[in-house]
């Protein structure tokens, strides 16, 4: 690395810090003025970088990197509100609880949820049911359909799980196929297997 590029790298780093400080100040002012409709942060996790987004009502979206974080922010802008800002401070609770979960120290989440991205009453019931499947347990799509008084709606349960905007927090990874195979997952079936293995080892 030449002296010139070292200097410009240092200048870039300074410029980034300055920008981050400006953005943090804007996010705080927007929050105080009631204008921060969607706050987001990108969190490190063993399942890769996670996009976490929250409205004043609660956490509204958790997305894996393979789902495309930019596309997810555009979806939030279109379906919830375009007043979206990066505001990691507003996601502190979510970040802490996810860290504890991945370290094996947390078996359930205590977070208000905003189901703005869940369309239809049945899908809302499925997502709410997902939060009640115990840590380390699994249920099949068909079982859940029965529990929700819709026997025969296993496919609809599958769709609701596939579209679950709050993976991990609403544990769709604990829902498996009737034959016991793992089935698909928004974060990839490898991640689903990793989460199930982590939970069964506890």
């Amino acid at each position: 690395m030449t002296d010139t590029s070292a200097f410009s790298a240092a200048a870039d780093a300074r410029e980034r810090r300055t920008r981050t400080a400006r953005e943090a100040r804007l996010a705080a002012a927007a929050s105080d003025a009631g204008l921060l409709d969607v706050a987001y942060a990108v969190l490190d996790s063993p399942a890769g970088p996670l996009l976490a987004a929250a409205t004043p009502a609660g956490v509204v979206r958790i997305a894996f990197a393979c789902e495309g974080h930019d596309a997810e922010l555009e979806r939030l802008a279109g379906e919830v509100s375009p007043r979206v800002l990066r505001a990691p401070a507003r996601l502190d609770d979510v970040a802490r609880q996810l860290d504890e979960y991945f370290e094996g120290r947390r078996h359930g989440f205590d977070l208000p949820m905003d189901l703005a991205l869940v369309h239809g009453a049945f899908r809302c019931r499925v997502v709410q049911h997902l939060t009640r499947i115990p840590y380390g347990a699994t249920e099949s799509y068909g079982t859940i359909a029965g529990l929700l008084d819709r026997p025969g709606a296993a496919r609809a349960v599958g769709t609701a799980c596939a579209r679950n905007p709050l993976p991990i927090v609403a544990a769709c990874h604990r829902v498996v196929r009737g034959d016991g195979s793992v089935g698909q997952y928004a974060g990839g079936s490898d991640v689903k297997r990793m989460l199930l293995a982590m939970e069964s080892g506890a």
């Binding site: 920008r19 953005e23 969607v38 922010l73 555009e74 939030l76 802008a77 375009p82 979206v84």
Partner: peptide, 15 residues
């Protein structure tokens, strides 16, 4: 209604 998140506007036009 726009679907461009405001964070993108700040990123693009902030400087």
């Amino acid at each position: 209604m726009t679907a461009i998140p405001f964070s993108e506007v700040v990123e693009r036009h902030g400087p």
